[in-house]
Design a binder for these strands. Structure first.
Lengths: 219, 219
DNA sequence: CTATTTTTGTTGCAAATGCAACAGTGTTAT
DNA sequence: ATAACACTGTTGCATTTGCAACAAAAATAG
């Protein structure tokens, strides 16, 4: 079974164009910094982030705002999907990069349309996959951030990457600066810790290539 | 619109029992510490956590394990929903409390059964709601844990609770010990910080009743 | 190729944090 | 009623961390 990253995965070109019509789909572009107003205006639409990055924010009464969710390529969003018991209009989707977004009717996703398109099951499956994979990713990062020290955070993240790669060696997916952001720690403090770990021989670092050397397990 | 916490919300009793048959549903009980083996054996089943708590863990080759997800009441899980590009059998759902779990066929959820039950849309809608609400919750905690200091973490969490309650006063949903766990900080350090904040007058604490006093916004 | 920007690597220092340990208070079980 | 247990509140101390600041290397743009 393959990994689902695209809501239209395993749906043919032909079915897609058929569906676009069926669902009254429309693609729109937004520039970095702009607010996707369709979000609050038409709660019946859901959006698929085809390209770019965005955030889902909640606006507090005092003007402060909380980031509720980070949205990346392939993510699905829409009021129909995030409704909680707070007021409509207090939430916004804001583009942090130039975005390309495909909107379509939420009702179409959850029930079959008149024409009884056969790919509906696949579409629902893909949606569920994308959302549950997101939960796993978020939980993964939560586990990392729950670690108390920088050293533990590094270890935790490294072992996830190692496991994902199936070996003790792997490539960092981003720069050390971004790594510090991802681990939510100070970059210089992280570098210092990394240096110590190298000296102690618990990791080997060469550019973005990392080799983890697990300490002997006590038992 | 109301908050969806139960996958069967807005589905009548009658439809439910009809569905149970339709979906070959079965409820099982697990005691704390036990592994839900159905998870890896029958990948076509999904589970609904009706009662209790569980975790989704990945078992590494060296015996170590990573918690991928925390599962709480109402959560949906199943291999069909969490499959990534790692081996089957390396993941387990382990009960951390006594659990009551309802299993049913995943295929039934995503496509209409022979009898064309009308509540399918509702079921799919509920599933999507539950999963997206989970993403919001996880992101919320991520934002909190991304804060650098204990003070910022407290503020961040308190303002989320305040916003949720619609006022500056609210009740902590759990003990201070649990709060420290939730914020992933040392309890005594948190108490110390809380004391400082009380002295400075930025919060009022009386048992589990918290009043946040926002500092004047600079502009 | 050169200028500019981003990333990496370092350090001193003050402040924040975790740890350990203990006492007091409240809660629950027997 | 009393014991057992969980939660709260506190403190000293060693360690870790964040911050600020700077230099060098690497990547990118013009």
């Amino acid at each position: 079974m393959e990994q689902v990253t695209n809501i239209f995965q395993n749906i043919t070109e032909q079915e897609c164009s058929q569906m676009m019509h069926c669902f009254q789909a429309a693609e729109k572009r937004y520039s970095a910094g702009s607010v996707i107003s369709t979000y609050s205006r038409d709660s019946q639409k859901i959006g698929i982030l085809r390209e770019g990055q965005a955030i889902l924010v909640r606006i507090h009464s005092d003007g402060r705002q909380t980031i509720l969710e980070d949205l990346h390529q392939g993510d699905i969003f829409g009021e129909a999907l995030t409704f909680e018991n707070f007021d409509i209009g207090t939430m916004q989707v804001v583009c942090t990069e130039n975005c390309r977004i495909l909107f379509f009717d939420y009702a179409c996703l959850i029930r079959r349309c008149q024409k009884a398109c056969t790919f509906h099951s696949q579409l629902v499956h893909n949606s569920l996959q994308i959302m549950s994979r997101k939960a796993v990713q978020l939980s993964e990062r939560l586990e990392i951030l729950s670690q108390r020290s920088i050293r533990e955070k590094l270890f935790c993240y490294f072992s996830i990457l190692a496991a994902r790669n199936g070996r003790e060696t792997f490539q960092l997916p981003f720069s050390f600066s971004s790594l510090a952001d991802y681990l939510a720690v100070d970059r210089s403090a992280m570098m210092r810790e990394l240096k110590k770990m190298k000296e102690e021989g618990t990791v080997e670092v060469e550019k973005r290539r990392i080799v983890t050397i697990y300490p002997r397990q006590p038992f």
